[in-house]
Design a protein around this nucleic acid. Structure first.
Length: 484
RNA sequence: GCCCCUGUAGCUCAACUGGCAGAGCAGCGGACUCUUAAUCCGAAGGUUGAAGGUUCGAUUCCUUCCGGGGGCACCA
């Protein structure tokens, strides 16, 4: 750390000691009766320029800027609701309080009591009558005008991003409103919110590598969940009928603009429903979220969304009908004949279908689209399609060129489920390290009898990206994964 | 893991083909009782991410390492 930094820190420390020497507590315990600055603005929206009100307020927040230093100064105070200008006048405060106020640093947390007025230039302000230090800031804040631009610092030191950049504050308030809107709609639809284990003896419900940990007392390996699916279905077996969980999943995979190792997932399961019902519920839910947050972007979330089968979507984008090339070699030949830029080495038929989808279809799906009916090989927990052999009743929803949701008519035949697990075991034996471990407890639960069920998973981070127009998941996660 | 870009003062950014590392804001000293990116005067603030190398001379060129961004691969 440079000597200048030490000087900056030393200056602030010296002010801290000066406060204490004057008998001022720089870190008091509380400051009751604070009003948001937005409430002050709201109450005096019609106050003419140059006029005083007769209303006094107590506000609190962080000092953001200061203008003037002599017998009168203006200061900007930020709180969560916005910014309010303070006026400090020698003839109001008296010499001692005026001097103490002028010693404050930008970044200090202060409480202010004062009279609301509107300045001659038309700015609603508070004429400070008393100022209380609520927390001395010992480090310099980011640039008052340019904010904090450095991406690395914004992500590693999110508190600086939030204090310096209003858009960052607004974004995370929007994220909270997204989550509130999701919960409210599901609650109103009769779903019960549940919590299932994060630490699991077996991971399952998705195809991904897990984080591994160890329980000392039990001396056994545990996994951080990659999905909540299997536990939630056991709750359907138990008769809860409509359940959801909105929480973190963990996948030990790469990091990208749309992948963070821990991410927030909503999963719901609804008895007596199928994937068509899940699609309708998803459309209504997301449209409801867009409305709740006042979304004004270019994506039209209004239901119903465009629906297309996976086979048709791939055919539209590439001209290849994957069902007419139902084995690996035939599909590879078709991909080569079409001149597609797609690696085919060591790729199985289902992997190639998935590649065609993710490389050639997904990026084009900007407006919300429901892609339906997937090959059984890609979907170990989905029920066979009622009319299309070899396919399952599964859809993925896409928007903004990203997958946002994945849903099935849930497989509830325990014998078929057991066969699917065995197929996964064979893939694992062949070297695939992202297969489903055999979960006998889950199969036994299905043997108990699970009603027909529609289930869905929705990526909350990606949904927030869409709702806020951000192109990186790191912008919508408060503390994204970074190297140490 | 591979490729490209990138790292300069607390913050935001400059620095030509290799030639003394500079400004604004913040901070410090001073002036100012309606300013709002306040203004004005003054002084200060740097191991140019780290370590090596080439050179009379490196922020600049080369190598390695570290961090960040983007892309590819992986990951639906």
């Amino acid at each position: 750390m440079g000597s200048e930094t030490s000087e900056l820190l030393a200056t602030r420390r010296a002010k801290l000691e000066r406060l204490r020497a004057e008998g001022v507590e720089p870190f008091p315990h509380a400051f009751p009766g604070v009003v948001p600055v937005a409430a002050v603005h709201e109450a005096h929206a019609d106050l003419p320029a140059g006029e005083d009100s007769d209303a006094r307020y107590r506000v609190a927040g962080r000092l953001h800027a200061r203008r003037g230093q002599g017998k009168m100064a203006f200061l900007d105070l930020d709180d969560r609701s916005g910014r309010l200008q303070l006026q400090a006048k020698l003839d109001v405060l008296g010499p001692e309080r005026m001097a103490r106020l002028l010693e404050l640093d930008l970044g200090d947390i202060v409480g202010v009591d004062g009279l609301a007025f509107r300045s001659k230039r038309g700015e609603l302000s508070l004429r400070a009558e008393d100022v209380t230090v609520l927390a001395k800031s010992l480090r310099p804040p980011p640039d008052k005008h340019h904010g904090l631009q450095d991406v690395e610092t914004r992500f590693r030191r999110r508190e600086l991003d939030l204090m310096a950049n209003e858009e960052a504050r607004e974004l995370f308030l929007t994220r909270a409103r997204v989550i509130t809107a999701v919960r409210r709609q599901l609650d109103e639809a009769g779903f019960v919110e549940v919590e299932t284990p994060v630490l699991q003896p077996l991971y399952g419900g998705a195809l991904a590598r897990p984080f591994t940990t160890h329980h000392n007392a039990l001396d056994r390996t545990l996994y951080l969940r990659i999905a909540t699916e299997l536990y939630l279905k056991r709750l359907i077996v138990g008769g809860l009928e409509r359940v959801y969980e909105l929480a973190k999943d963990f996948r030990n995979e790469g990091i990208s603009y749309k992948h963070n190792p821990e991410f927030t997932m909503l999963e719901w399961y609804e008895a007596y429903a199928d994937y068509n019902d899940a699609a309708a519920r998803l459309e209504a839910l997301v449209a409801g979220v867009a409305q709740a947050i006042g979304y004004e972007g270019e994506i039209d979330f209004t239901a119903p969304w465009r629906r297309v089968t996976l086979v048709a979507a791939i055919r539209e984008a590439t001209g290849i009908d994957v069902l007419e090339h139902r084995d690996r070699d035939a599909l590879v030949a078709a991909i080569r004949a079409a001149g597609l830029d797609l690696p085919v080495e060591d790729r199985s038929w289902p992997q190639l279908v998935d590649d065609l989808l993710s490389k050639h279809v997904e990026p084009e799906l900007v407006q919300p689209t429901i892609v339906m009916d997937y090959p059984v090989e890609l979907s170990p927990f989905a029920k066979a399609h009622r009319t299309q052999p070899g396919l399952v009743e599964r859809f993925e929803a896409f928007a903004g060129g990203m997958e946002i949701a994945n849903a099935f008519t849930e497989l509830n035949d325990p014998d078929v489920q057991r066969e699917r697990f065995e197929a996964q075991l064979r893939l694992a034996g062949a070297g695939d390290d992202e297969t489903q471990p055999y979960d006998e407890v889950f199969v036994e639960a299905l043997e108990q009898g699970m009603p027909p069920t529609g289930g869905l998973g929705l990526g909350i981070d990606r949904l927030t990206m869409l709702m806020t127009g951000r192109r990186s998941i790191r912008e919508v996660v408060l503390f994204p994964a970074m190297r140490d």
